[in-house]
Amino acid sequence: MTVLPVNGGLVLAAGLFAIGLLGVLVRRNLLYTLMCVEIMMNAAGLAFVVAGAKWGQPDGQVFFIFILTVAAAEVAVGLALVNQIYRRFHTLDNDSTSSMRG
């Protein structure tokens, strides 16, 4: 077996996470927000798998499966919400759905 680039994998996860977060902060389209959340979750999963590989344990991969489950449920509910919002506000701009401001 070759030496696995474990630190590199964690750095990649951090990078993907930061980019995803950037997207959440910047993009106003709700679809993009959801996609960026997916990126962030994927990055978190990547970090788990890398960590699991680092310690030679299967737990990291098990947690990736859980994250996958959460992501699937999240996307299902999130997209249904996007659908409702578009029907009511006729826009996907998440700044315009700010009627709950204090």
Partner: peptide, 30 residues
């Protein structure tokens, strides 16, 4: 947002780099 994310990224890199080195340098396939 870019600045914010960059700071977060740098912090995360710092965490990764300053962590202890891999226990098994050559991790086996799971």
């Amino acid at each position: 947002p870019s600045l914010l994310c960059l700071v977060l990224f740098v912090e995360m890199i710092y965490v990764v780099v300053s962590g202890e080195p891999s226990a098994t340098a050559a991790a086996s396939e799971i």
